[in-house]
């Protein structure tokens, strides 16, 4: 039998690295994931992901033996709260699947542990040398500065962030700075699950169309049109890895770009590869061909672009 990694089609046994929907679909026989990821999956509105599956929560650094004799161990990954890497040891070989990951410290969630391995499966969402991101301290400073600047000139700062992860990081940052903050929809709905992980979110309130002035707003990108159409003096900031390039203005409709990501920038990816000592690397997501070629040519590593939905043959 085999274990699948972030399979998006139903399989007998699936490891879910984190709760973003492009990595977690339902219908599997068994689901292995971190307890926090399982908590987020229970809150997902779109489908009953966990229904009918055997759920196996995995704590960090607690090895689990599979019937085939392989041993799997969850390792911390900086991405969103609950994200984990997975180490698979079998027949004296170590394989590491990063899931989505970054190396810099995140605003929320664990820090990445670099795990030595023989075979690395790594993502390359931002696997081009033009992508370089702010540290979490710099990002927090820019978020707070933009909010204060807008509020002091009488406009309404609006931050665009994804519903799970980025959105709560922005809310958390604004709350810690004592800035009145209104939060929209799914971002607000997932705040309590973050509080269960020990983060304090003080003083935010749900979005109220009739009562916007004087508050920073955190909304999902799809809600931008509604806010702009309201005719209120909104100024929009886009907090994302894509904000590292100016064409993000046209793509997102934001004027302020804050290049902060829950994915690794190019150099971070190289550092993860170098730190792992892996001799073989499979690259998934994003600029897979380019990043794999760079690893071959610059690191002399057996690297290739792979398809997502990786199946670990452990028997």
């Amino acid at each position: 039998m085999g274990l699948w990694l972030d399979s998006i089609v139903p399989v007998a046994a699936n490891w879910i690295s984190h709760a973003h929907s492009d990595h977690s679909r339902g219908g599997h026989g068994r689901i292995l994931a971190s307890p926090e990821t399982i908590r987020f999956l229970r809150l997902r509105e779109d489908e009953q992901i966990l229904a009918g599956s055997v759920i196996e929560p995995m704590e960090c650094d607690a090895p689990v033996s599979l019937p085939s004799g392989a041993v799997i161990t969850a390792k911390p990954a900086a991405h969103i709260t609950g994200a984990r890497q997975l180490l698979v040891e079998f027949g004296g070989e170590r394989l590491l699947y990063t899931g989505d990951i970054k190396l810099q410290k995140p605003l929320l969630g664990a820090e990445t542990e670099i795990v030595p391995c023989d075979h690395l499966i790594i993502e390359s969402t931002f696997g081009l040398p033009v992508y370089r991101f702010l540290t979490c301290e710099q990002a927090a400073e820019r978020i707070v500065r933009f909010a204060r600047e807008c509020l002091s000139e009488g406009s309404i700062p609006v931050f665009l962030g994804y519903p799970l992860g980025r959105g709560q990081e922005i809310v958390y940052t604004l709350c810690r700075a004592g800035i009145p903050t209104a939060v929209h929809g799914a971002i607000a709905r997932l705040i309590p699950a973050h509080e269960e992980s020990g983060y304090q979110f003080c003083g935010w309130e749900p979005y109220d169309a009739a009562n916007m002035p004087g508050k920073a707003h955190v909304v999902t990108p799809g809600f931008r049109n509604t806010l702009e159409a309201s005719g209120k003096p909104v100024r929009i900031a886009y907090v994302s890895g894509w904000a590292a390039v100016d064409n993000a203005r046209a793509r997102s409709g934001a004027e302020e770009l804050i290049p902060y990501s829950d994915h690794a920038g190019f150099q971070e990816l190289l550092d993860i590869v170098d730190g792992s000592g892996a001799r073989r690397v499979d690259v998934v997501h994003g600029y897979t061909e380019t990043f794999a070629r760079i690893l071959r040519e610059r690191r002399n590593i057996d690297a290739r672009a792979a398809m997502v939905g990786v199946h670990v043959e452990d028997d």
Binding site: L128, P129, V130, V245, D246, N247, Q267, Y287, R293, E297
Partner: peptide, 25 residues
């Protein structure tokens, strides 16, 4: 190499910006 620079330029869409981003380190 040229291929990496070509992909970067394609994604960034502007020559000057690509130069700034590539040369930063």
């Amino acid at each position: 190499d040229d291929e990496t620079l070509r992909v970067c330029h394609r994604e960034v869409g502007d020559g000057g910006e690509t130069v700034g981003l590539i040369m930063a380190p």
